[in-house]
């Protein structure tokens, strides 16, 4: 019963997460295209992103100033964050069922995920 309930919550979190992320991306995209739509696109050459668009603090700062690119990236980072919640909730589900081995397994996945996003990704 509890399993079914957590799976239900997991489904709702995933769906609302991806939809709100898409909402941010759409809003930011509309602003970006409205402001820069007539400029020439330079997507052919890889220059990497400017430093303010590579970190959460930078993106938050840009989004606060209503930069379209900043808001798009905020939506994308939120989508990644939802995946952390996905693993966290699965871990909780195993904990609820007193399934120690699988709590450890999902914690291991969670740690690697956080390592990739927070440590390597800095």
């Amino acid at each position: 019963m509890k399993t079914a309930r957590i799976e239900h919550i997991l489904g709702i979190v995933l769906l609302s997460g991806v939809l709100s992320s898409a909402g941010f991306v759409l809003a930011g995209g509309a602003m970006y295209v409205a402001r820069h739509g007539t400029e020439r696109a330079h997507y052919r050459i890889f220059r990497g992103e400017p430093s303010d668009l590579r970190s959460l603090q930078g993106v938050l700062g840009d989004a606060r100033e209503f930069s379209g690119r900043g808001i798009i990236l905020l939506g994308l980072m939120f989508l990644v964050a939802v995946q952390i919640i996905r693993v966290g909730l699965t871990c909780l589900l195993f904990a609820w069922n007193r399934d120690r081995v699988f709590v450890m397994i999902s914690l291991l996945v969670l740690v690697m995920l956080l390592y990739g996003i927070l440590i390597e990704g800095r």
Binding site: G29, E49, R54
Partner: peptide
Amino acid sequence: FRDGFIDPGVTM
């Protein structure tokens, strides 16, 4: 993100 692979203009 760190390596600058994710361009908002393309990804959107």
